[in-house]
C-alpha cells in the first residue's frame, strides 16, 4: 500500500475512534436526559418538594412521595458501610503491610471471585442464612420481634457485596504512599504499627475516605440482593430491624405495573433519576479525591 493510503487510513481510524469516545461520554448525559424526559410529566402535576420530601406513596391517587424510599436507601447503605469499613480497613492494612506473598497469593483470587458473584446469589444466601439469623438471634437479643426481612439483613448482605471494591481501592491507595516515607519512619525507630498509624493512615486519609465513598455509592444502587431480603414495606423505618424499601428495590419490584397506572412510569423513572443523581454525586466526589492523590504522586 502507498504511504499516502496508509496515512489516510490512520486519519480515518482516528476520527472513527474519536467518534466512539464521544459516543461513550455522551451516554452519561443521554441517560440523565432520557430519565428526565420520562419523569417530566410528573413535575407538571406534582411539586418537587412533594415528590422528594413527602412519605405519601399512593400511586392510585397520584401521590408519589419518595422520601421513605430515599431514607430506606440511606439506611441500608449506611448499615452496610458501618459493617464493611472497619473490616475492609483491617483487611487492607493486613494485606498491604503484614501479609507475606503466599497469603496474598491465596487471598486476592478469592476476593476476585467474591467480586464476580452475581447479586442474586447474594440475595439467595441472604434469604437462607441472614434473614433467619436476624429473626431468630439478633432480633430477640434486642427484645424485638422481626420477620428477619429487614434493613439490617439488607445491610449485612450489602456489606459483603462491597468488600471487594473497598479493599481494591484501599490497596491502591496504600500503594501510593511512597516506600521512602515508610522507611524513613521505620529508620527513626518507629515500629511497624507506629508507622502505620502515624504515616500510612495519615497520608492515605483522603484516599481512605474516597474508598469508603466509592463502596457507599456502589451499595446505593445494588438491587436484587437487597430487594430479596429487605422486606419491601413502604414506611419510614425507625430502626434497622424494621423492613425498608430502598429505591432500587422499589423500581425493580414495580416494573410489572409500570403502564397500568397513570404517571406510574414517570414516577419510577424519577426514582431512577434520583438514584442516578445521588450515585453520580458521590462518585464524582470520590474520583476527585483519588485524582488529586494521583496528581500529587506524579
Amino acid at each position: 500500500m502507498s504511504s499516502q493510503g496508509r496515512i489516510l487510513k490512520d486519519k480515518i481510524a482516528h476520527k472513527v475512534m474519536l467518534a466512539f469516545v464521544w459516543l461513550t461520554i455522551i451516554l452519561l448525559l443521554v441517560i440523565a436526559l432520557g430519565l428526565f424526559i420520562k419523569a417530566w410529566p410528573l413535575f407538571k402535576t406534582v411539586s418537587i418538594s412533594d415528590l422528594l420530601f413527602s412519605t405519601t406513596w399512593v400511586p392510585y391517587e397520584g401521590k408519589f412521595g419518595m422520601l421513605s424510599f430515599i431514607i430506606s436507601t440511606f439506611w441500608v447503605t449506611g448499615v452496610a458501610t458501618v459493617i464493611a469499613v472497619p473490616l475492609c480497613l483491617l483487611c487492607a492494612i493486613y494485606l498491604s503491610e503484614y501479609a507475606n506473598k503466599k497469603v496474598i497469593a491465596w487471598v486476592s483470587p478469592l476476593i476476585d471471585i467474591l467480586a464476580g458473584i452475581p447479586s442474586v446469589i447474594f440475595g439467595i444466601w441472604g434469604v437462607i442464612v441472614i434473614v433467619p439469623f436476624v429473626r431468630d438471634i439478633l432480633a430477640p437479643m434486642f427484645g424485638v420481634s422481626s420477620t428477619g426481612y429487614s434493613i439490617l439483613a439488607g445491610g449485612i448482605v450489602l456489606s459483603i457485596m462491597v468488600f471487594p471494591i473497598v479493599i481494591y481501592v484501599l490497596l491502591e491507595v496504600f500503594k501510593t504512599v511512597p516506600e521512602d516515607l515508610r522507611n524513613a519512619a521505620l529508620s527513626l525507630g518507629a515500629n511497624k504499627w507506629i508507622m502505620i498509624r502515624k504515616v500510612l493512615l495519615r497520608k492515605a486519609g483522603p484516599g481512605i475516605i474516597s474508598a469508603i465513598v466509592l463502596g457507599f455509592s456502589r451499595a446505593l444502587g445494588e438491587t436484587l440482593a437487597v430487594l430479596m431480603v429487605v422486606g419491601n414495606v413502604v414506611d419510614l423505618p425507625s430502626n434497622p430491624l424494621e423492613a425498608g424499601y430502598p429505591l432500587p428495590a422499589m423500581i425493580a419490584n414495580n416494573y410489572g405495573e409500570l403502564l397500568s397506572i397513570p404517571m406510574y412510569d414517570s414516577a419510577l423513572m424519577l426514582c431512577a433519576l434520583v438514584l442516578f443523581v445521588i450515585v453520580v454525586f458521590f462518585n464524582i466526589i470520590a474520583r476527585i479525591i483519588l485524582r488529586r492523590i494521583e496528581k500529587k504522586i506524579s
Binding site: 443521554v30 441517560i31 432520557g34 430519565l35 466509592l214 455509592s217 456502589r218 446505593l220 444502587g221 445494588e222 438491587t223 432500587p248 423500581i251 425493580a252 419510577l268 423513572m269 431512577a272 438514584l275 442516578f276 450515585v279 453520580v280 462518585n283
Partner: peptide, 11 residues
C-alpha cells in the same frame, strides 16, 4: 462504571 445496573435498566 459507578452507575447502578437498575438505572441502566430504567434507561
Amino acid at each position: 462504571w459507578g452507575i447502578p445496573s437498575i438505572v441502566y435498566g430504567a434507561f
